[in-house]
Write a protein that binds this DNA or RNA. Structure first.
Lengths: 121, 121
DNA sequence: CGGAATCCGCCGTGATACTG
DNA sequence: CAGTATCACGGCGGATTCCG
């Protein structure tokens, strides 16, 4: 329901954000970027994510071409995940965002304190 | 419920994403960055956002110190919003993300098509 | 081990109506 | 014009169970 005439890029921006704005997706990408290749339960333990959400998230990331999935039909089964080239390139802007955030967290906290103090009256 | 021992940064990353991962917040910041100063209904029309969500979003952004709110007690009332210095600096990493997205949208679409085709069997 | 399927509570979001 | 308040709905996400 966005006004395309006054904000022609909003639709694309929204499409982007709905893809990359997901909390779990970004965390999975960051983990894979840091550790290289990881197994399903390895990611699960590392992120504290539920099986359901990890499964859904990985499926989406694989569908979007950000993550490779390798299935080893052993017993017990073994499935490994790692980033594709696009997944790796995606990490750059995300890292920039994370870096900005870490740099400004204290400023944000201070601003909140000031704001809350003024609101309570 | 994140495992701090195996992923000590996850908590902070989550905190960051919950702040900047919001769809409307980012769109508001981008609009203000592009147009400078805007009024409430101007933002509303421009983004196609509901009154409720715009009100909540602006309040959060002001609380976090990213947006300045200026109230003119005229009749009818007039309220203007613009970015703070931190809000302006926030735009850089967000723009990087948007730029990456625009560059890779076609690749993502292609990956989805391939994936979907393979899944349907 | 790596999922898929089901159930269900919570809440983000929009629509609507009201206020100053 | 710039909000606030209320309601109703859809979907995200966790817990649980079952399967290959």
């Amino acid at each position: 329901m966005l006004d395309d005439e006054r904000c022609p890029d909003c639709k694309r921006i929204n499409e982007v954000l709905s893809r990359v704005g997901d909390r779990w997706s970004v965390l999975v990408v960051i983990s894979l970027a840091e550790y290289g290749t990881m197994r399903f339960n390895e990611l699960k333990r590392n992120l504290g994510i539920s099986q359901r959400m990890l499964s859904l998230t990985l499926k989406e990331l694989e569908r979007d071409g950000l993550v490779n999935r390798t299935y080893h039909p052993t017993i017990p089964p073994k499935v490994e995940y790692n980033l594709t080239e696009m997944g790796l390139s995606f990490r750059e802007p995300v890292s920039a965002l994370g870096f900005w955030a870490l740099e400004n967290l204290s400023r944000i906290d201070a601003a909140r304190e000031t704001y809350d103090e003024a609101v309570v009256k």
